[in-house]
């Protein structure tokens, strides 16, 4: 064990596994605190009238992405450490596929709905829009 020195606290990324029980617990507590804070802000943003209405949905999505980041770093320990390169690359690929599937579908289906005008009965059959 004396081969290397314990890395100093400042050299450890937030989610990096520590060998010290206190700093490990503290990392989880920080993650929990940030997640609760972001959840609370999400519920507040959704119910307040202080924010410009059309911007609320975008704000909620941004808050959700931020909270996912907190979970990834503090709970799943996805960091920039050398052991984590493969995990980060896999995550990047996963995020790309998720992005393509969701944005592609919403984009295309939104345009199809807008362009399905001529036969209302058929449009209703396709999408059950009342």
């Amino acid at each position: 064990m004396s081969q290397y020195e314990e890395p100093q606290a400042l050299n450890v990324a937030p989610g990096e596994p520590h060998n010290n029980i206190v700093s490990e617990v503290v990392a989880y507590v920080i993650g929990l605190g940030l997640a609760l804070l972001l959840t609370g802000v999400s519920f507040w943003v959704a119910s307040t009238t202080a924010i410009w209405g059309p911007g609320v949905a975008t704000g909620l999505v941004v808050l959700a992405i931020a909270q996912m980041g907190v979970h990834l770093v503090f709970f799943l320990h996805i960091t920039s450490g050398p052991d984590n390169t493969n995990n980060v690359l896999a995550l990047a690929f996963g995020v790309m596929i998720v992005f393509l599937v969701m944005v592609g579908t919403i984009w295309i289906m939104g345009h199809m709905n807008a362009n399905m005008g001529p036969t209302p009965e058929m449009a209703n059959l396709m999408t059950q829009r009342g």
């Binding site: 579908t105 919403i106 289906m109 009342g130």
Partner: peptide, 12 residues
């Protein structure tokens, strides 16, 4: 999620 987002207004 993509399916849900496409159909969320299709309430019949």
């Amino acid at each position: 999620f993509a399916t849900y987002a496409s159909l969320v207004h299709a309430t019949d």
